[in-house]
Design a protein around this nucleic acid. Structure first.
Lengths: 165, 165
DNA sequence: CAGCTGAGTTCTCTTTAGCAACTCAGCTCG
DNA sequence: CGAGCTGAGTTGCTAAAGAGAACTCAGCTG
């Protein structure tokens, strides 16, 4: 397979699409709502009814998404109790779930640069410890900052699988 | 609104969910296939039939996704001609589309860390200029590397909008 | 001019999402 | 005690999106 440059690509298309880490991650969080649910969990909106009203998601769909997140161990369902009420449940990010933050921040960065209105970005993420604005950067092990449109080549890794069929 | 810690969150839920840059970006690329299409475009799989066979996406769905990407100016439809054939079309990432790379690399990094099999990651992204492995990092303007589970607080930005209703 | 190719469109069927109403447990109040 | 409230769901119906296969269509070759 080649492209219009005639330049021989190292046959990316020869490798299985679903084995890719992007595809595998999207299988967990790549539906229409999950990343927004994770965003809200990260921002302290952790209760069922709060999530439905803030997101505008249908209750049955939220129910499924939360169950899937708990199942994938990206979120944890824990009991809480406010006085004068029985025990209720809320959802909090797990360790693995919090490690999705760079993905959310990457989305945020792109949206801020390309989709913000004239007034500027709707939200500003800051380092909780020092208060300085936060950004996502692509760097290489040689110490280069690859900038906004990183020139990246993808090589087959040890876990690569050729496409069947 | 509060959470089980009793700690007063600065009312994230008071702000409109759809105004968020994450939500806006997901509105463009947040369906089941678009990010995988973008991944393939980034890796040189640029033609309709190649995309259908590599991704396993239905042709009508791919058709819609590509049209949406062109419409959003994330991809460009350009003609090419191989000798002995009439002009055909392929899809390439636009400037804005290439700026989505950090998002794809963030997905890849998470998947590599959490979903790779025993053999290791399926693919290795390297800096096209120097060949060194590439990674996504979250940093703050004070120069801190926030690590894998960045402690980030979100403040209302200039373009924030309170939730209606 | 018959057949091939790449790039789609059209049609039917299944899956997922959206919406509204209903359930259910335990709490408070009269 | 029983009525009503609240948060966290479930159930049932409709609407939209995706899967799969067949069909179209333009221009090229033999």
């Amino acid at each position: 397979m080649s492209n219009s440059t005639g330049w021989a690509v190292p046959e990316y298309s020869a490798f299985d699409s679903e084995t890719c880490s992007i595809a595998r991650t999207l299988a967990l969080v790549g539906d229409r709502w999950t990343l927004l649910v994770l965003r809200d969990l990260a921002n302290g909106v952790t209760r069922f009814d709060d999530l439905t009203t803030h997101l505008g998601i249908a209750r049955n769909v939220l129910s499924k998404r939360l169950a899937a997140l708990v199942d994938a161990e990206l979120a944890v369902r824990t009991g809480y109790r406010t006085e004068g009420s029985r025990e209720r449940y809320e959802y909090r990010l797990s360790r693995a779930g919090r490690e999705l933050m760079p993905i959310l921040l990457a989305f945020m960065g792109w949206g801020d640069r390309h989709l913000a209105g004239p007034q500027g970005p709707p939200a500003l993420p800051v380092h909780a410890d020092c208060g300085a604005p936060v950004r996502v950067a692509v760097t290489c092990e040689a110490g280069h900052d690859l900038g906004e449109r990183p020139r990246v080549r993808v090589q087959p890794g040890p876990g690569s699988r050729r496409r069947e069929g």
